[in-house]
């Protein structure tokens, strides 16, 4: 849950990048760190295993500056995607204000995307949140690999699989090249701030 300090006119909110293992959540944060280095309010913390799998979480604090008289600070997190880290994944999700679901475009990862989205829905529910009411953006990552002749799912198919009911904004992306990363971030920030305005009425 966002922290709104009325006296200091500050809002601190939390956005979590969720998705199956190896879908590119950490790569998204690394690109944000590179592209928006002026807004980055500290260092990016990543705790990985030898094989570059996220072990705990990644953390990147950014500052958006003043919006309607309020200083907006955002904490970006990724969750560990591997199945065995279910309990820490849930812990990282606690108090979330907005979610980016990063889906893997590889055809072979179709089922993993769906399982991970169900996991997100279940974990949000356990925290008393409804996925349909949570600011959410879908990102269809690794689109660049079509050039390497790897079977990818068409975006239409991914929309049908993941976004048929949610009907949330979605972006095709190649996080490794930075494509679609900024658009995804801007959209989730916008949706989150709109939701926080409804809940906290911060922009008076």
């Amino acid at each position: 849950m966002a922290i709104f300090n009325l006296n200091k006119k500050e809002i601190e909110c939390k956005i979590v990048f969720y998705g199956p293992g190896r879908c590119g959540k950490t790569t998204n944060l690394e690109q944000i760190f590179k592209i928006y280095h002026k807004q980055v309010a500290g260092e990016m913390v990543s705790i990985n295993t030898e094989g570059d799998r996220t072990l705990f979480f990644d953390f990147l604090p950014i500052e958006l500056g003043k919006i309607r008289g309020c200083d907006i600070r955002v904490q970006l997190y990724t969750v560990p995607g591997q199945v065995q880290y279910a309990s820490t994944r849930k812990l990282v999700l606690r108090g979330v204000d907005g979610v980016v679901f990063v889906a893997d475009s590889f055809r072979v990862r179709r089922e993993k995307n769906m399982i991970s989205l169900q996991d997100l829905q279940k974990n949000l529910k356990e925290y008393g949140s409804n996925i349909l009411k949570t600011p959410l953006v879908l990102q269809y990552n690794k689109r660049d690999l079509a050039d390497q002749d790897i079977p990818l799912m068409p975006v239409k198919m991914m929309e049908r699989d993941l976004n048929r009911q949610l009907k949330v904004p979605s972006f095709a992306a190649s996080a490794v090249n930075g494509d679609g990363v900024g658009e995804t971030l801007k959209k989730i920030l916008k949706l989150t701030l709109i939701k926080l305005q409804k809940d906290l009425n911060w922009a008076k």
């Binding site: 190896r22 072979v108 990862r109 390497q148």
Partner: peptide
């Protein structure tokens, strides 16, 4: 090979 480099 691509899956391997991607860690899958």
């Amino acid at each position: 090979d691509v899956y391997h480099t991607q860690g899958l």
